[in-house]
Amino acid sequence: MFGEPVLSESQEQSNRMSAWIRVGVAIVVTCLCSLVIVLILQHDKGIPPLARLALSNLEFTGVENPVTAVLLNYRSYDTLLEIAVLMIVAVTVLPNFQCDAGAAQPFVVIDEQHKVDPILAGLVKWLVSCAVISGGYLLWTGAHAPGGAFQAGAVIAGGGVALAVVGKYRFNWLANGVSVAIVLGLAVFMGVAGLSKAMSGVALAFPVDEAGLLILIVEIAATVSIALVLLLLFTELND
């Protein structure tokens, strides 16, 4: 049913689907989408019971922002597994650990030979500082307003990307401690899961009084990991 995946433009031209099949696919897809839209129109727009439950139990979650409460309290299993997915991607993309050559070098290697436009160099310094500060702010504000580990991680990774595209700076993913920082989010999350199991008898069921602190610890560790993984993906695919 699907067009055969190819890697080059010329191959794509040669085994292109015939126009009739493409028109047929377009008609089928349009019919499917129209059906879904009709179903949405008929759907009763009442408030789902889950939303009411999530909002009415907010005082027991340790945070004031309902989205953070869903992410890290009600459905923290999902978030734990999503961070695990990020770890799997990171392990796949990470450069080969067998060579120890990079271990002695620092995380950010500065290429002194590389000439950078002074305006660009100044701008990047500002951009990176702003990204790190706004990341920290987003992380902190996640407890009561939109924000949290995922947004903070993405913003900090954006700062790293700005640093990487200048050309003068190179990230050394084999440096000491970087791999520890990458798995920090998952490790701390699992540690907190074990701790909550010991405290309340159920893994990831945070006790009401300590929930805010536990969520903050998980968020800080997750931010570090998410930022590093996103930056790793960018730099490794860019080489």
């Binding site: 889950l50 939303a51 909002l55 989205v67 869903v70 999902d78 999503e82 993906l233």
Partner: peptide, 18 residues
């Protein structure tokens, strides 16, 4: 605003990028 889909999308975006 239902927070459950928001949380799903939030993590979904990062996982989709990965």
């Amino acid at each position: 605003t239902d927070p459950v889909p928001h949380a799903m999308v939030l993590t979904g975006i990062v996982v989709a990028v990965a």
